[in-house]
Amino acid sequence: MLEIKGLTAGVEGKQILNGIDLVVPSGEVHAIMGPNGSGKSTLSYVLSGRDGYEVTGGSASFDGHDLLEMPPEARAAAGLFLAFQYPVELPGVNNANFLRAALNAQRRARGEEELDSVAFLKLARAATKKLSMANDLLRRNVNVGFSGGEKKRNEVLQMAILRPKLAILDETDSGLDIDALRIVSEGVNAQRGPDFSALVITHYQRLLDYIVPDKVHVLARGRIVRTGGPELARELEETGYASVLAEVA
């Protein structure tokens, strides 16, 4: 379970999150929607531990761990996964080696046995097939020369292999055509279960037709200003963010 209380944070002295309160129980998928500049990406980076973001108050815990005290790799080993809005290219790093290094680093951190290359490749091939990805994607350098859609699929592939307990999807729908959107959503839905929760950050309701959330939160000016069911997403799609922003102004 993810529990965020009164979280304030910013970057370069500018406060962006103005007191976030949010609970995502195990097994639930929550969506965070909001206009540009409302703090959606900042929230995902603060939760995953990116340098340069300063937490000025509040707390964030995950399954009893104080997230904000942990380096990014420890958060990952504890089960947190961030699907990047802009996946990073790693020239010279082979995708399969990268995935195996990540999986085994997490397993080591949790005191589990590492996977050998044969067992890993079997796992990776199966996951690749499920996501309708070309096999050569494992042999290529991480995200180098990938199309926008391939990069997003590669994020979901990593998630499928690392099997996090909490996934934060930061605008995973941006740059995806409708077929890719469907495949990526199926990849996320396949993870759903009592031990998996997700925070789906998006600007548009479209993604939420495929990944149906248990709850929808509206983020504006660094605060959650409304919470509702999936119907809230459709309401926003019709009325836009202006009405919500007017309410809280």
Binding site: R50, P71, P72, E73, A76, F84, L90, F98, A105
Partner: peptide, 11 residues
Amino acid sequence: QLFYLRSRGIP
């Protein structure tokens, strides 16, 4: 790049 790798659990 460093953050990307660390976010995947690599120390």
